[in-house]
Design a protein around this nucleic acid. Structure first.
Lengths: 215, 215
DNA sequence: GAAAGAATAGTACGACCGTGCTATTCTTGT
DNA sequence: ACAAGAATAGCACGGTCGTACTATTCTTTC
């Protein structure tokens, strides 16, 4: 689990010039990766986008694969800061489950990355390309899903959600709505899909509230 | 709407040698596109994969963009043959809605394309790359979604589904489960996600059956 | 079976790729 | 302020990219 990372900037002070430049490069790299692809993002292209020379930029990473791995890690830290950390502040139970889904959709909608969710983009790209990059992306998505599932379990244990549907399956369904709204927005540019996703999630959670059965 | 295409082979007889080679190239191109990406699929790579010379293959299309467009069209015809046409054979109503979803999941599961759903892969890739290729992919996905929505409408009109949820939103939810199962399978290689998706779809359709309210 | 034309291969081109190596400029700690 | 070293730039390399142009081989049609 990667979710103990607290912040990708702010609390993390970037002392040396090297660290600051590296951070700026990775910001740009993560953004560009969602628009033009992480695999096809070339060193020269990224050097142009950051007003650096190809070799100056390259020296920060040593190889393209290291650059890609650093970009994935950077994006993961951003995801934690934008989605997981705020939701973790919500109280345990269905409130936190909702917060996770809502922040996830919000993160797509606000376009924290210009091409939509970083992990939706890159997982589609690296699905079938074995290697460290693929493994790290997979691990991050696995972490997200198991954290969401864990939050559902807590809500079930608190008696806020009927356990008729397994936490695993409910997490799958909730994630499906968030993921697909991200994909549809990128394709159709119609923001109403986010409301459809939110409503679907709200209805699904509501349908599993034990109040009606307990009455 | 593109769904009047009947078949991509079988009924379509490929007379000349040129047509046959072209068909074989596009089969290979569509498959490779789901594994290595449609944008980064190079002429040389595809020539190797089809045992042709770069220039011999290139002559069939005249430009890379034409090759990509032809590949999208080819994949669309395959999708119609594998998913839409069989489901269209099912009777109108909730049966056909189910058939569409089930065939869609089946098409992912059987790996008609080795890297999963062609349009899931390529739409993620071309989201943010304006041009004819992006437009054609978008149009195809739009057709799929509106056909699914149309099938839901018919089921509602037949009184087989409560119209409390709009056809548009229900189609979104059903598609979400199918899409996400495709994505998760490509990432985690665990086929049980297909059953989760099927169960989610079945439960959702069941929850909107009017029988319980009419009783 | 031969003429006509389609299909395929060969070769070359400028552009960009990732990555070495060396030189220069800028930061940092004292 | 200066020495040490980090950060950045310049340049060169073999390789692949998409796409011309030409030459050869294979199909099709009469």
């Amino acid at each position: 689990m990667i979710f103990w990372i607290q912040s990708y900037n702010g609390t993390t002070v970037l002392k040396t010039k090297g660290e600051r430049t590296r951070h700026a490069i990775l910001d740009r790299a993560a953004a560009l990766a969602t628009q033009e692809g992480l695999a096809s993002l070339s060193i020269g292209r990224l050097a142009d986008a950051t007003d650096m020379s190809k070799s100056g930029l390259f020296a920060h990473f040593g190889s393209k694969e290291e650059l890609q791995l650093a970009t994935v890690d950077h994006a993961a830290a951003m995801f934690v800061e934008e989605v997981v950390a705020p939701a973790r502040a919500a109280p345990r139970g269905v409130t936190r489950v909702w917060a996770l889904c809502d922040r996830m959709i919000d993160y797509s909608q606000r376009q924290v990355f210009p091409g939509g969710c970083f992990f939706a983009c890159t997982s589609a790209e690296f699905n079938n390309r074995p290697g460290q990059v693929r493994d790290r992306i997979e691990e991050m998505i696995r972490s997200w899903l198991s954290y969401l599932e864990h939050a559902v379990e807590q809500a079930q244990e608190a008696g806020e959600l009927e356990p008729t549907l397994s936490a695993h399956e409910l997490a799958f369904q909730l994630d499906s709505f968030a993921q697909t709204s991200n994909a549809h927005f990128q394709l159709f540019r119609d923001a109403s899909v986010f409301e459809n996703a939110r409503r679907a999630i709200r209805d699904r959670l509501e349908s599993l509230r034990p109040t009606s059965a307990a009455a």
